[in-house]
Amino acid sequence: MLRLEARPIPSTLMGYAAPVIALLATVVFGSILFATLGKNPVAGLTVFFITPLETVRGLTEVGLKMVPLLLCALGLALCYRSNVWNIGAEGQLVVGGIVAGGVALLASPASIPGYFLLVLLAGMAGGMAWAAITAWLRDSFNANEILVSLMLSYVGGLLLLYLVNGPWKDPKGFNFPYSKTFDAVAMVPKLVPGTRLTWGIVIAFLALVVIWIFVARSKAGFRLQVAGHAPLAARFAGFSAREGIWMSLLICGALAGLAGALEVAGPLGQLTPQFSSGYGFAAIIVAWLGRLHPGGCVFAAFVMALIYIGGELSQSRLGLPAAITGVFQGMLLLSLLTADTFIHYRLRRV
Protein backbone atom coordinates (compact mmCIF):
# COMPACT_ATOMS: atom_id res chain seq x y z
CA MET A 1 0.00 0.00 0.00
CA LEU A 2 1.12 3.50 -0.66
CA ARG A 3 1.07 6.18 1.92
CA LEU A 4 1.80 9.86 1.93
CA GLU A 5 4.85 10.95 3.80
CA ALA A 6 5.87 14.49 4.64
CA ARG A 7 9.12 15.61 3.11
CA PRO A 8 11.65 17.02 5.54
CA ILE A 9 12.02 20.05 3.30
CA PRO A 10 9.68 21.04 0.48
CA SER A 11 10.87 19.76 -2.85
CA THR A 12 12.13 22.54 -5.10
CA LEU A 13 11.98 20.23 -8.06
CA MET A 14 8.34 19.41 -7.40
CA GLY A 15 7.62 23.09 -6.92
CA TYR A 16 8.35 23.59 -10.58
CA ALA A 17 7.25 20.18 -11.77
CA ALA A 18 3.82 20.26 -10.09
CA PRO A 19 2.16 22.60 -12.58
CA VAL A 20 3.58 20.58 -15.46
CA ILE A 21 2.32 17.32 -13.97
CA ALA A 22 -1.07 18.91 -13.42
CA LEU A 23 -1.23 20.06 -17.01
CA LEU A 24 -0.31 16.59 -18.20
CA ALA A 25 -3.00 15.07 -15.99
CA THR A 26 -5.49 17.55 -17.38
CA VAL A 27 -4.44 16.62 -20.90
CA VAL A 28 -5.12 12.96 -20.13
CA PHE A 29 -8.44 13.56 -18.37
CA GLY A 30 -9.41 16.18 -20.91
CA SER A 31 -8.71 13.85 -23.80
CA ILE A 32 -10.92 11.20 -22.23
CA LEU A 33 -13.64 13.79 -21.62
CA PHE A 34 -13.54 15.15 -25.18
CA ALA A 35 -13.37 11.66 -26.65
CA THR A 36 -16.43 10.49 -24.70
CA LEU A 37 -18.29 13.51 -26.06
CA GLY A 38 -17.32 12.49 -29.57
CA LYS A 39 -14.88 15.34 -30.11
CA ASN A 40 -11.31 15.10 -31.27
CA PRO A 41 -9.20 15.37 -28.10
CA VAL A 42 -6.41 17.21 -29.88
CA ALA A 43 -8.84 19.81 -31.19
CA GLY A 44 -10.37 20.14 -27.73
CA LEU A 45 -7.08 20.75 -25.99
CA THR A 46 -5.84 23.07 -28.72
CA VAL A 47 -8.86 25.28 -28.26
CA PHE A 48 -8.16 25.63 -24.55
CA PHE A 49 -4.41 26.03 -24.51
CA ILE A 50 -3.24 27.23 -27.92
CA THR A 51 -5.98 29.04 -29.85
CA PRO A 52 -6.34 31.87 -27.29
CA LEU A 53 -2.62 32.64 -27.66
CA GLU A 54 -2.24 32.43 -31.42
CA THR A 55 -2.80 36.05 -32.34
CA VAL A 56 -1.78 39.41 -30.91
CA ARG A 57 -5.44 40.14 -30.37
CA GLY A 58 -5.81 36.87 -28.49
CA LEU A 59 -2.83 37.60 -26.29
CA THR A 60 -4.13 41.05 -25.41
CA GLU A 61 -7.49 39.56 -24.50
CA VAL A 62 -5.84 37.07 -22.15
CA GLY A 63 -3.91 39.97 -20.63
CA LEU A 64 -7.09 41.99 -20.20
CA LYS A 65 -8.80 39.12 -18.45
CA MET A 66 -5.79 38.57 -16.17
CA VAL A 67 -5.79 42.09 -14.73
CA PRO A 68 -8.72 41.86 -12.30
CA LEU A 69 -7.91 38.25 -11.42
CA LEU A 70 -4.31 39.11 -10.59
CA LEU A 71 -5.08 42.25 -8.60
CA CYS A 72 -7.74 40.58 -6.48
CA ALA A 73 -5.62 37.48 -5.97
CA LEU A 74 -2.65 39.54 -4.76
CA GLY A 75 -4.83 41.16 -2.13
CA LEU A 76 -6.47 37.92 -1.10
CA ALA A 77 -3.15 36.12 -0.82
CA LEU A 78 -1.98 38.79 1.56
CA CYS A 79 -5.13 38.38 3.65
CA TYR A 80 -4.81 34.60 3.79
CA ARG A 81 -1.13 34.83 4.72
CA SER A 82 -2.13 37.00 7.67
CA ASN A 83 -4.90 34.58 8.59
CA VAL A 84 -7.70 36.94 7.60
CA TRP A 85 -10.39 35.01 5.73
CA ASN A 86 -11.64 37.68 3.40
CA ILE A 87 -13.79 36.10 0.70
CA GLY A 88 -15.45 39.35 -0.28
CA ALA A 89 -13.04 40.69 -2.89
CA GLU A 90 -16.00 40.69 -5.28
CA GLY A 91 -17.83 43.25 -3.18
CA GLN A 92 -14.68 45.33 -2.81
CA LEU A 93 -14.18 45.21 -6.58
CA VAL A 94 -17.77 46.22 -7.27
CA VAL A 95 -17.77 49.12 -4.82
CA GLY A 96 -14.38 50.22 -6.15
CA GLY A 97 -15.91 50.26 -9.61
CA ILE A 98 -18.91 52.22 -8.30
CA VAL A 99 -16.80 54.95 -6.70
CA ALA A 100 -14.47 55.08 -9.69
CA GLY A 101 -17.51 55.32 -11.94
CA GLY A 102 -18.91 58.14 -9.81
CA VAL A 103 -15.72 60.12 -10.24
CA ALA A 104 -15.52 59.27 -13.93
CA LEU A 105 -19.06 60.55 -14.48
CA LEU A 106 -17.95 63.96 -13.22
CA ALA A 107 -15.33 64.24 -15.92
CA SER A 108 -15.81 66.54 -18.88
CA PRO A 109 -13.63 67.31 -21.88
CA ALA A 110 -12.37 70.28 -19.87
CA SER A 111 -11.03 68.08 -17.09
CA ILE A 112 -7.31 67.95 -16.48
CA PRO A 113 -5.30 65.49 -18.56
CA GLY A 114 -4.56 62.37 -16.58
CA TYR A 115 -7.99 62.54 -14.95
CA PHE A 116 -8.13 58.77 -15.18
CA LEU A 117 -5.54 58.56 -12.41
CA LEU A 118 -8.08 60.24 -10.17
CA VAL A 119 -10.62 57.63 -11.26
CA LEU A 120 -8.24 54.83 -10.33
CA LEU A 121 -7.48 56.40 -6.94
CA ALA A 122 -11.21 56.72 -6.32
CA GLY A 123 -11.61 53.04 -7.11
CA MET A 124 -8.93 52.13 -4.61
CA ALA A 125 -10.54 54.34 -1.99
CA GLY A 126 -13.93 52.73 -2.64
CA GLY A 127 -12.57 49.22 -2.31
CA MET A 128 -10.70 50.18 0.85
CA ALA A 129 -13.80 51.71 2.38
CA TRP A 130 -15.82 48.58 1.69
CA ALA A 131 -13.09 46.34 3.12
CA ALA A 132 -12.82 48.67 6.10
CA ILE A 133 -16.35 47.74 7.14
CA THR A 134 -15.26 44.12 7.41
CA ALA A 135 -12.09 45.12 9.26
CA TRP A 136 -13.99 47.35 11.66
CA LEU A 137 -16.63 44.74 12.47
CA ARG A 138 -13.93 42.15 12.97
CA ASP A 139 -11.81 44.44 15.09
CA SER A 140 -14.45 46.11 17.24
CA PHE A 141 -17.18 43.49 17.29
CA ASN A 142 -15.22 40.34 16.70
CA ALA A 143 -17.59 39.55 13.83
CA ASN A 144 -16.37 36.72 11.60
CA GLU A 145 -14.92 38.18 8.42
CA ILE A 146 -15.94 35.25 6.21
CA LEU A 147 -19.58 36.00 6.80
CA VAL A 148 -19.31 39.79 6.79
CA SER A 149 -17.23 40.03 3.63
CA LEU A 150 -19.47 37.57 1.79
CA MET A 151 -22.70 39.33 2.79
CA LEU A 152 -21.18 42.68 1.87
CA SER A 153 -20.53 41.32 -1.62
CA TYR A 154 -24.25 40.80 -2.10
CA VAL A 155 -24.96 44.24 -0.67
CA GLY A 156 -22.39 45.82 -3.02
CA GLY A 157 -24.03 44.17 -6.02
CA LEU A 158 -27.44 45.50 -5.00
CA LEU A 159 -26.00 48.96 -4.39
CA LEU A 160 -24.69 48.96 -7.95
CA LEU A 161 -28.09 47.84 -9.19
CA TYR A 162 -29.74 50.65 -7.26
CA LEU A 163 -27.39 53.31 -8.62
CA VAL A 164 -27.60 52.33 -12.27
CA ASN A 165 -31.37 51.97 -12.01
CA GLY A 166 -31.83 55.24 -10.21
CA PRO A 167 -29.61 58.21 -9.48
CA TRP A 168 -26.90 57.38 -12.00
CA LYS A 169 -29.07 56.16 -14.84
CA ASP A 170 -28.22 57.74 -18.18
CA PRO A 171 -31.09 60.17 -18.81
CA LYS A 172 -30.76 59.53 -22.54
CA GLY A 173 -30.55 55.77 -22.18
CA PHE A 174 -34.25 54.97 -22.62
CA ASN A 175 -34.51 53.97 -18.99
CA PHE A 176 -32.09 51.12 -19.22
CA PRO A 177 -29.97 50.56 -16.15
CA TYR A 178 -26.72 51.94 -17.49
CA SER A 179 -24.79 55.08 -16.64
CA LYS A 180 -23.67 57.62 -19.21
CA THR A 181 -20.51 56.65 -21.02
CA PHE A 182 -17.46 58.27 -19.48
CA ASP A 183 -15.60 61.08 -21.11
CA ALA A 184 -12.40 59.98 -22.86
CA VAL A 185 -10.27 61.83 -20.34
CA ALA A 186 -11.56 59.55 -17.58
CA MET A 187 -10.59 56.39 -19.43
CA VAL A 188 -7.43 54.39 -18.92
CA PRO A 189 -5.29 54.80 -22.07
CA LYS A 190 -4.79 51.87 -24.38
CA LEU A 191 -1.50 50.02 -24.22
CA VAL A 192 -1.75 48.28 -27.58
CA PRO A 193 -3.57 50.45 -30.12
CA GLY A 194 -6.39 48.72 -31.91
CA THR A 195 -6.96 46.25 -29.10
CA ARG A 196 -8.71 46.49 -25.76
CA LEU A 197 -5.61 46.10 -23.63
CA THR A 198 -5.04 49.16 -21.45
CA TRP A 199 -2.24 50.31 -19.20
CA GLY A 200 -4.14 48.36 -16.58
CA ILE A 201 -1.89 45.38 -17.17
CA VAL A 202 1.18 47.49 -16.48
CA ILE A 203 -0.44 48.84 -13.34
CA ALA A 204 -1.29 45.30 -12.24
CA PHE A 205 2.31 44.20 -12.67
CA LEU A 206 3.53 47.27 -10.81
CA ALA A 207 1.19 46.29 -7.98
CA LEU A 208 2.66 42.81 -8.15
CA VAL A 209 6.19 44.14 -7.70
CA VAL A 210 5.15 46.39 -4.83
CA ILE A 211 3.35 43.58 -3.03
CA TRP A 212 6.21 41.20 -3.63
CA ILE A 213 8.70 43.61 -2.08
CA PHE A 214 6.29 44.34 0.73
CA VAL A 215 5.86 40.69 1.58
CA ALA A 216 9.43 39.57 1.12
CA ARG A 217 11.44 42.54 2.24
CA SER A 218 9.59 45.02 4.36
CA LYS A 219 9.30 44.90 8.11
CA ALA A 220 5.60 45.66 7.95
CA GLY A 221 5.07 42.71 5.65
CA PHE A 222 6.86 40.45 8.05
CA ARG A 223 4.92 41.73 11.04
CA LEU A 224 1.72 41.21 9.17
CA GLN A 225 2.42 37.53 8.72
CA VAL A 226 3.66 36.99 12.22
CA ALA A 227 0.62 38.73 13.62
CA GLY A 228 -1.56 36.47 11.54
CA HIS A 229 0.06 33.19 12.32
CA ALA A 230 1.29 33.52 15.84
CA PRO A 231 -0.74 36.20 17.56
CA LEU A 232 0.82 35.41 20.94
CA ALA A 233 4.38 35.58 19.71
CA ALA A 234 3.49 38.72 17.84
CA ARG A 235 2.15 40.34 20.96
CA PHE A 236 5.39 39.64 22.80
CA ALA A 237 7.28 41.20 19.95
CA GLY A 238 5.07 44.24 20.16
CA PHE A 239 2.83 43.92 17.12
CA SER A 240 -0.82 43.27 17.23
CA ALA A 241 -3.27 41.07 15.41
CA ARG A 242 -5.39 44.19 14.98
CA GLU A 243 -2.72 45.67 12.79
CA GLY A 244 -2.79 42.54 10.65
CA ILE A 245 -6.54 42.64 10.19
CA TRP A 246 -6.63 46.27 9.20
CA MET A 247 -3.58 46.28 7.02
CA SER A 248 -4.36 43.15 5.01
CA LEU A 249 -8.00 44.05 4.46
CA LEU A 250 -7.25 47.61 3.45
CA ILE A 251 -4.56 46.55 0.99
CA CYS A 252 -6.83 43.89 -0.46
CA GLY A 253 -9.69 46.39 -0.70
CA ALA A 254 -7.46 48.86 -2.50
CA LEU A 255 -6.28 46.27 -5.01
CA ALA A 256 -9.76 44.90 -5.64
CA GLY A 257 -11.12 48.43 -5.94
CA LEU A 258 -8.39 49.22 -8.44
CA ALA A 259 -9.43 46.15 -10.42
CA GLY A 260 -13.02 47.41 -10.47
CA ALA A 261 -11.90 50.86 -11.60
CA LEU A 262 -9.81 49.35 -14.39
CA GLU A 263 -12.84 47.42 -15.65
CA VAL A 264 -15.30 50.30 -15.73
CA ALA A 265 -12.79 52.87 -16.98
CA GLY A 266 -11.11 50.34 -19.26
CA PRO A 267 -12.94 48.07 -21.69
CA LEU A 268 -16.42 49.16 -20.59
CA GLY A 269 -16.39 52.92 -20.29
CA GLN A 270 -19.63 53.09 -18.32
CA LEU A 271 -21.22 51.60 -15.24
CA THR A 272 -23.30 48.55 -16.06
CA PRO A 273 -25.29 46.32 -13.71
CA GLN A 274 -22.89 43.39 -14.13
CA PHE A 275 -19.48 44.80 -14.90
CA SER A 276 -17.64 42.08 -12.99
CA SER A 277 -17.75 38.51 -14.25
CA GLY A 278 -17.27 37.25 -10.70
CA TYR A 279 -13.56 38.12 -10.67
CA GLY A 280 -13.44 38.57 -6.91
CA PHE A 281 -14.59 35.00 -6.34
CA ALA A 282 -12.50 33.45 -9.11
CA ALA A 283 -9.50 35.21 -7.55
CA ILE A 284 -9.86 33.08 -4.42
CA ILE A 285 -8.92 30.08 -6.53
CA VAL A 286 -6.18 32.10 -8.22
CA ALA A 287 -4.69 33.03 -4.84
CA TRP A 288 -4.55 29.44 -3.61
CA LEU A 289 -3.45 28.09 -6.94
CA GLY A 290 -0.62 30.62 -6.81
CA ARG A 291 0.26 29.23 -3.37
CA LEU A 292 -0.37 32.67 -1.87
CA HIS A 293 2.79 33.88 -3.52
CA PRO A 294 2.76 36.98 -5.75
CA GLY A 295 4.71 35.22 -8.49
CA GLY A 296 2.49 32.18 -8.30
CA CYS A 297 -0.56 34.39 -8.62
CA VAL A 298 0.64 35.59 -12.03
CA PHE A 299 0.88 32.04 -13.28
CA ALA A 300 -2.49 31.13 -11.78
CA ALA A 301 -4.20 34.23 -13.17
CA PHE A 302 -2.83 33.37 -16.59
CA VAL A 303 -4.17 29.80 -16.37
CA MET A 304 -7.59 30.97 -15.19
CA ALA A 305 -7.82 33.59 -17.94
CA LEU A 306 -6.87 30.97 -20.47
CA ILE A 307 -9.49 28.46 -19.42
CA TYR A 308 -12.22 31.09 -19.30
CA ILE A 309 -11.47 32.20 -22.83
CA GLY A 310 -10.87 28.61 -23.95
CA GLY A 311 -14.32 27.79 -22.61
CA GLU A 312 -15.93 30.33 -24.92
CA LEU A 313 -13.89 29.17 -27.87
CA SER A 314 -14.75 25.52 -27.27
CA GLN A 315 -18.41 26.47 -27.62
CA SER A 316 -18.10 28.40 -30.85
CA ARG A 317 -15.42 26.18 -32.43
CA LEU A 318 -16.47 22.74 -31.27
CA GLY A 319 -20.07 23.19 -30.21
CA LEU A 320 -19.38 22.03 -26.68
CA PRO A 321 -21.85 23.26 -24.04
CA ALA A 322 -20.64 25.81 -21.49
CA ALA A 323 -21.27 23.22 -18.81
CA ILE A 324 -18.38 21.15 -20.12
CA THR A 325 -16.14 24.12 -19.62
CA GLY A 326 -17.01 24.11 -15.93
CA VAL A 327 -16.25 20.41 -15.72
CA PHE A 328 -12.95 20.92 -17.50
CA GLN A 329 -11.99 23.90 -15.36
CA GLY A 330 -12.84 21.99 -12.20
CA MET A 331 -10.68 19.10 -13.37
CA LEU A 332 -7.73 21.32 -14.16
CA LEU A 333 -7.94 23.00 -10.76
CA LEU A 334 -8.28 19.73 -8.90
CA SER A 335 -5.25 18.28 -10.73
CA LEU A 336 -3.20 21.37 -9.98
CA LEU A 337 -4.09 21.12 -6.30
CA THR A 338 -3.31 17.43 -6.23
CA ALA A 339 0.05 17.93 -7.90
CA ASP A 340 0.89 20.61 -5.36
CA THR A 341 0.64 18.03 -2.62
CA PHE A 342 3.82 16.44 -3.81
CA ILE A 343 5.86 19.52 -3.07
CA HIS A 344 5.49 18.84 0.61
CA TYR A 345 4.80 15.13 0.55
CA ARG A 346 5.97 12.05 -1.23
CA LEU A 347 4.47 8.64 -1.74
CA ARG A 348 6.06 5.76 0.08
CA ARG A 349 5.35 2.09 -0.12
CA VAL A 350 4.38 0.81 3.29
Partner: peptide
Amino acid sequence: LALTLFGAGLSA
Protein backbone atom coordinates in the same frame (compact mmCIF):
# COMPACT_ATOMS: atom_id res chain seq x y z
CA LEU B 1 -14.11 26.13 -4.63
CA ALA B 2 -12.95 23.82 -7.40
CA LEU B 3 -15.64 21.37 -6.32
CA THR B 4 -18.27 24.08 -6.64
CA LEU B 5 -17.09 24.91 -10.14
CA PHE B 6 -17.02 21.25 -11.08
CA GLY B 7 -20.46 20.59 -9.59
CA ALA B 8 -22.03 23.56 -11.32
CA GLY B 9 -20.72 22.39 -14.68
CA LEU B 10 -21.50 18.73 -14.21
CA SER B 11 -25.03 19.35 -12.94
CA ALA B 12 -25.78 21.65 -15.87
